[in-house]
Amino acid sequence: MNLFLSTLILFISTILLVFFLKKNKILIQWKNRKNDKRRIKIEDALKYLYNCEYNKLTCSLNSIAGSLSITSNEAANLIKILEEMGMIATAGESFILTAEGKRYALRVIRTHRLWEKYLADETSISETDWHSLAEIKEHKITSEEAENLSAQIGNPLFDPHGDPIPTAEGIIPRRKGIPLTQLEKGDFGKIVHLEDEPSAIYQQLVAEGLYIGQQVKLIDKNNERLHFEANNESCFLAPSFAKNVTVEMLPDLSLVKKSFKRLSDLKLGEKGVVVGISKACRGKQRRRLLDLGLVPGSVVKAEIKSVGGDPTGFNIRGALIAIRKKQSDQIFIKNESE
């Protein structure tokens, strides 16, 4: 009995050990750990500096230390290293990126946004986790791997938050739009960007049901809160939150969509006409729905419900297609007569 158990345990642990040593190269990783940490700090610092420049802010030693959560001594060290590498140059109290530093920063940002796009399109990982996972991944992927990833997901132009993805050559267009806080009462706007940092604010925005492409109407604003309408529902945000939402003004009111019903609102036997699919439905899922004929103008009829009440079978262009509520919530419809 003892003999058997101990042999078994020994056997299994040997297999596990060999397996993990081979797979993850633990020993080598051990040595690389220190280098990795340094690389992460360098890349994070470059990213921070780049963002400062992009948003036309000045950054100091202290703000770097603050954003990377390191002491100012460590930050000073880091700056020294970056200067030696030729990544940054000092201009009085602040720092600017050299061409080399900017290229490096853009490569990290490209990887980060590609990975977010990948997570959004190809996996079912929750929206609130994309950013933090990409924060880790951006330091691990080589630029070659990043290019392969880009090819695999169809060379996307924007990340799921609406940020443009820099090209491999480091070209990035200027962001359009204004913060939500700059809209006036009665203005219409379309959300073009949701800032994903800090993540506490981002999670609140997601929880409010905001997404890229959504149309909003500002009802009222004061110093304490903004009142606006999104998808026919009232939303309230503190200005400190609302400034992380970027919108594009919609001056032409004909572009403004009315509030629509959702496909999931159809009762059995009812018909509706598809108006569009929410931008929150992305990647493969979106393409699949489009391929099935859920394009603007298609007449859809709810035919059967499954035993559990979800999914529902819809008649779409002559075929019976079962769709879960989570997706039919993302498809907007109007009545046939409208």
Partner: peptide, 14 residues
């Protein structure tokens, strides 16, 4: 294998 249930669309053939 963390993640939410992803999209599911199934054609119910005649």
């Amino acid at each position: 294998l963390k993640g939410e249930a992803s999209a599911f669309s199934l054609e119910l053939p005649p």
